[in-house]
Simulated assay, not measured.
Amino acid sequence: MTTYVWDYLPEYHQERADILDAVETVFESGRLVLGESVRGFEREFAAYHGVPHCTGVDNGTNAVKLGLQALGVGPGDEVITVSNTAAPTVVAIDGAGATPVFVDVHEDTYLMDTDQVEAAITPRTKALLPVHLYGQCVEMAPLRRLAERHGLVVLEDCAQAHGARHHGRLAGTFGDAAAFSFYPTKVLGAYGDGGAVLTSDAAVDRALRRLRYYGMEEVYYVVDTPGHNSRLDEVHAEILRRKLTRLDAYVAGRRAVARRYAEHLADLTGPGGLVLPTLAPGNDHVHYVYVVRHPRRDDIIAELKRHDIALNISYPWPVHTMTGFAHLGYGKGSLPVTERLAGEIFSLPMYPSLPVDVQDRVIGALRDVLASL
């Protein structure tokens, strides 16, 4: 049987009764769109983070896009972010009509190099968009200082950082707003697409609610400013409500898997060897994915495939190198750390219900492959 980086079935089998009860609850409620399940999840997700407002939307990409629009970002504006991210981060910037501007990342943590941000600011810069990648947070204090000095807004991309903390504060509580994805693979995942935007600004929250519902607010069928159809589904919201109560347990499970990997692979590190994840100062990692590095990454993945272990690369193609963003003018070598990482990183299987015997199988196979290189 093939081992994959992620599998929802073990968790589903454990939680099946609660998941099916959530579906039944919605179907018996008499309200299938923007009902009590969405309202309840919005209240509870906001309360978990200690912020006053949460707007549920249909996916994480639109959480970023609508978050930018609600913060006043649009055509003619520039948004500073990273290329070492999932393409939807940048697709959302483009969808808001703005232009993405990339800075490089730290080689050890793979996170935005905040020391490069100020040099990238121009008169057109409107927003900073840090991506809390792989399960830990970007250093936020320097970004907040830059935002205040230059009159910029900050939108956190928290799609991979549910429950992560930075100097004791939860990801999603540092910016003017924060975008989350609830895609099934996420630390807090639905059984389909879903997303949300957190904010402490009531005006931003009102704008988000208009934007997700065609541009309507108090009077249905009356549009003041055209918006979108980007509503969080009631069924997914009810499932997320149930799963939110288990979020801390999911994080603990991921950390346990990460500890076993670190313990059993530590002796394989060193010059030219395997590079294990690095924890940035002040961070509590939730290990959305367990990303390692090796200069012979492609050979390792090919050999592990022969062992029926299918690994993933997050991400093999930096966004600035993609054809769809060639018009931005970033040539080869413009983001050297990002480009180097793309040829070396790969992800080991990671989810809280990953059985110990499967972990051991992955560890053993990886050790064998590295010994044979």
Results as ranks from 00 to 15, higher is better:
E15I: 02
N84G: 07
H307T: 02
Y8V: 13
L328V: 01
A202Q: 13
D7P: 08
A171F: 09
Y351K: 02
E44N: 15
A266K: 11
R246D: 12
P277R: 00
D248Y: 01
G270K: 07
V82N: 08
E139T: 15
E234P: 08
P10V: 03
P277S: 01
D77M: 07
A249F: 08
V105D: 03
A302F: 11
V51N: 13
A22K: 00
Y110N: 08
L244Q: 04
L211V: 02
L279G: 07
P100D: 01
H132S: 10
A147K: 03
H132L: 11
Y191Q: 10
A63Q: 04
G76E: 03
A98W: 00
A266M: 09
A256S: 14
A161D: 10
T185L: 13
S230Y: 07
D94T: 13
E36G: 12
F27W: 09
V33L: 12
P226E: 07
T109F: 07
V292H: 02
L268G: 03
V187L: 11
G35A: 05
G135S: 13
D77A: 15
R144M: 15
P123W: 04
A326M: 08
G192K: 05
R254Y: 11
C137D: 07
I313K: 15
A371C: 08
L170I: 10
D58A: 11
R340F: 05
I80Y: 08
